[in-house]
Amino acid sequence: MLCRHAHVSRSYYYKHFVTFDDVIRQAAFAESISYLRSLPDIASNQTNVKMAHYFELMARTRDERLILLRVGKQEVLTQTFATVQQYLYEHNYIQLPDGVNSRRPYWLEFLAGAVVNVAFRWLQNGCQETPAQMGQLIADFIATK
């Protein structure tokens, strides 16, 4: 049924994917590329705007995200978020907070887990705040010392 819905043959599926997590990871990666392309050309210190765009993506894909949460597949999305954040840091789209460089792998895991979990809670609560409000909330959390 998955192959039919995706309009691919079963042989294509088995050639390109080993597990269902691979399918989810590829879909999340494609969404991430869309997210990156939607980012405005702004100064690297405007984390709130970049996070607002992430929450807009989450809101657009709310039903799919909640299904993934229900079936315990949030780790795939957390890994994808960490990969995207790493790209943003490496290309100076977002600045790492002071003193974080030496612990970067832990920072990415921390941030990805925190943001994805907050986003899931926000989706479960019906997206009561706007994506801009959520983006500012995350930016405030990151800036807290």
Rank of each mutant, 00 (worst) to 15 (best):
L137G: 02
L57T: 12
D21A: 02
V18Y: 00
Q86V: 01
A82Y: 01
G113K: 14
P105N: 11
Y54D: 06
E64Y: 12
A59V: 01
L69E: 14
N125E: 15
R62E: 13
E90F: 14
Q95F: 07
N92R: 11
R104E: 08
V76R: 05
E90D: 15
I138K: 01
A112H: 10
L66W: 14
R25C: 09
A143D: 15
A143R: 12
K145M: 00
N125F: 01
K15H: 08
L123R: 06
Q46H: 11
D22L: 08
Y54M: 08
Q136L: 12
L137F: 07
L2E: 05
I142N: 04
H91V: 11
L137T: 04
I24S: 04
P131N: 06
F141P: 01
L69Y: 15
F81I: 12
Q136R: 13
K145P: 07
R65M: 15
I138Y: 00
A112W: 01
E75I: 10
K15S: 07
W107K: 02
K15Q: 11
V116C: 10
R10H: 13
P105F: 12
I42C: 06
M51D: 03
L96K: 12
A27Q: 07
G113R: 13
R60W: 04
A52L: 04
T61K: 05
R121D: 01
A132P: 01
V49Y: 02
Q136V: 00
N92T: 15
A119Y: 02
D21C: 00
V76H: 04
L69C: 12
N101Y: 04
V116P: 00
R60H: 06
M58P: 00
T144W: 06
H53R: 03
R65D: 10
F81K: 03
M58V: 10
A143E: 15
A6K: 02
V100I: 15
H91Y: 12
V116M: 11
V100P: 07
